[in-house]
Nucleic acid binder design. Structure first.
Lengths: 150, 150
DNA sequence: CTCAATGCAAATCATTTGCACACCC
DNA sequence: GGGTGTGCAAATGATTTGCATTGAG
């Protein structure tokens, strides 16, 4: 699906979300959503903020924080803590649930999926009579050192 | 094993760790280690800081931060981010590796172990030729709503 | 027109840093 | 004694908040 087509889809979802709760359809909310769905990696607040600054479309950080919060609630964005203070985000609608390997050498982020996570999740839900709303799994890894001893 | 006995054990481990690297054996480092091994839950920096304040044993926050960092490196403490800004810690030596379920109703923290995590870890290590140093897995859950419709 | 949303700056909160002093080695 | 570790306070950096202003409904 093209980027433009994807945006059309999530834009509709946002509109529904806002209308359902009688929230306002501000240009900032749509602009932020659109930018996010153009980004293919993980980004932080500053990245978005600078993006808008470069485009001479002024959006304050307060609004970015607020809007990302709202988009999370709408299920259109995922937030990550990666063990850092500063949070990272990513678009979430067309990406199915996935987990992350953080490469400690260069902080590259690799995504992966493994059905066993869901199995574990389901087992615990049943065993403990709880409902697991979400999960976060990070592997922190390094490239294997080349072993010169042969 | 009694709390006192446990402390004796980790105290020795800390001593070895410090001696190996020619770090100093300061009273603060041992006092912090001892307190931590008396705590059976997850705690944050402030909790520790206030604990010492109450005992009239003065330890600065800077030292607590430094020492927890050191104890982590020594493998005696684990740090958690739980998706919050502020970090939580727990003693780690007698607890084997485990993961956490965070109950969103009351922020209770439940620990669990599941061998499938290690399986996943091993599979990825092999498939990608990396070494996974650590991982963090949290399930965010709620008690199941009682269904009155029968 | 009204009130929710935005923008800006100030406030907050966890964590880090700089530096003088203390005390382990 | 010498230099690492500590304490304190100031600095930092991400996030939150308060409030005046704007603009969506």
């Amino acid at each position: 699906m093209s980027v433009q087509k994807e945006y059309e889809t999530v834009k509709e979802l946002l509109t529904n979300y806002l209308e359902e709760r009688k929230f306002r359809k501000t240009p900032e909310r749509y602009a932020i959503l659109e930018e996010i769905y153009k980004i293919d990696e993980h980004f932080d607040i500053d990245y978005l903020y600078n993006l808008f600054k470069k485009k001479h479309f002024s959006v304050s950080k307060a609004t970015i924080y607020n809007t990302l919060e709202l988009l999370m609630e709408a299920g259109l964005v995922r937030k990550h803590q990666f063990g850092k203070v500063q949070a990272f985000y990513e678009k979430s609608y067309f990406n199915k649930n996935h987990d992350h390997i953080i490469m400690l050498d260069d902080f590259e982020i690799i995504e992966f999926c493994d059905p066993r996570i869901d199995e574990i999740k389901n087992d615990f839900e049943e065993a403990m009579d709880i409902e697991i709303e979400s999960h976060s799994l990070y592997f922190y890894a390094r490239k294997k050192k080349v072993d010169n001893k042969k």
